[in-house]
Design a protein around this nucleic acid. Structure first.
Lengths: 221, 221
DNA sequence: ACCTGAACACCGTTCAAGT
DNA sequence: ACCTGAACACCGTTCAAGT
């Protein structure tokens, strides 16, 4: 049960332990005291390696998002590359739900800056003219971050252990019970929510943004 | 200086004081002790009216977002109505920056559910077929929430008082100093970031999502 | 240079006691 | 029914003291 401790104590070791703690017990579980216990030391020791909780969280985000962001397959078309990139972020949040809250909060610090850069390159490859490339890349990033926050918030609201399917079921029930005069649309969408494939829905939305970029910003050739 | 206290103590009064506290001193400023002081009572008194901090925050969000969400001008076209709705959320965040963090976290609780419902109606009015209307409304909401988080995170990272223009200037400087081999796109976008009109940029991105919805989901007529 | 752990100044929340 | 405020069980962070 006791987590053995690597050599002395290192920034990387601390960040790794922080990620484990976040994965195991959520944001509320990441505490300097809990972290110190896991590292078999006192809370003060951590401060020699890391400035504070903000930096710790940022480092945890970075360590986890870095894996998700790589160029993507070389032969891919720009839309394919954008999908790969976005799915990398989406799947990382699936594995580390705390990311969904943390990503939008640590906006263009290093980890997300890399995602933005990659999106921007694909936007260029798509043929968007320079004057519009910032808008296009931002729209893609904002959509991705919006889904991130949304997907993280949902299960967090209920008990941390609740699985996604029963959560969606409950939400769908709640929607179905809404007053049809006040909420006709949401009520009708309840069914759609129930047998919802998050990943597919995420991609479908992403494709809408891509389609908008192509329709409005890419000159015909 | 002493804030006079209305009749005895009411849920509405508490929520109003919480919003003031959030506006004045940010998320960190909202404390049961500070709130109690402002209301000239003890911290325990608040608990008789409100379950806890989560409910307090949710109530603050709701009270502030409710004003921003109304049907919009009756004669508006669906895209105009979507823009009005989205701008309502955007401007509310401008006035109450803490909303940007809180909105994505309180996802489809009552306040945002109303936004979702309104977006959905406009999506229908646009002519999106039922099978796709959930996807379209979600894409719009996710984009809006993404921008919300992004806009809130930025100034929060720096000192709470930093004004937007100098913040953008600093960010643009940092981007301009990036390694051009690693970050060619972001570096080139630095200029664009500097003289950035948030509101216009927000609308431009929203129009991309709308254009995608129309291009991909609305059958020609 | 790096670690220890007590101590400080806070939190949210509870609850006996008051009115 | 509603309010009071001390008390509880926590936080993040600091810092003298150790090695």
């Amino acid at each position: 049960m006791a987590t053995r401790r690597e050599p002395p104590l290192s920034r990387d070791g601390i960040v790794r332990a922080a990620v484990e703690l976040l994965d195991d017990s959520g944001e509320a579980g990441l505490t300097f005291r809990a972290l110190a216990e896991r590292l078999a030391t006192g809370p003060g020791a951590i401060y020699w390696h890391i400035a504070g909780k903000g930096e710790l969280l940022a480092a945890a985000v970075e360590s986890v998002i870095a894996d998700a962001v790589f160029a993507g397959p070389a032969g891919a078309t720009p839309p394919e590359a954008v999908r790969t990139l976005a799915l990398g972020v989406f799947d990382a949040i699936d594995v580390h739900p705390w990311l969904g809250v943390q990503l939008p909060l640590n906006p263009l610090r290093t980890p997300m800056l890399r995602v933005f850069e990659s999106l921007g390159r694909q936007v260029r490859a798509l043929g968007v003219p320079p004057a519009a490339e910032f808008t296009a890349a931002s729209a893609l990033l904002n959509y991705i971050l919006g889904v991130a926050g949304q997907n993280a918030a949902a299960p967090r609201a209920i008990a941390p252990g609740t699985d996604r399917a029963t959560f969606l079921g409950n939400a769908a029930d709640a929607w179905a019970a809404l007053n049809p005069d006040e909420y006709p649309f949401t009520r009708a969408a309840a069914g759609r929510l129930r047998d919802h494939d998050d990943r597919a829905e995420f991609l479908a939305g992403l494709d809408l943004v891509l389609a908008g970029i192509i329709a409005r910003l890419v000159p015909p050739r």
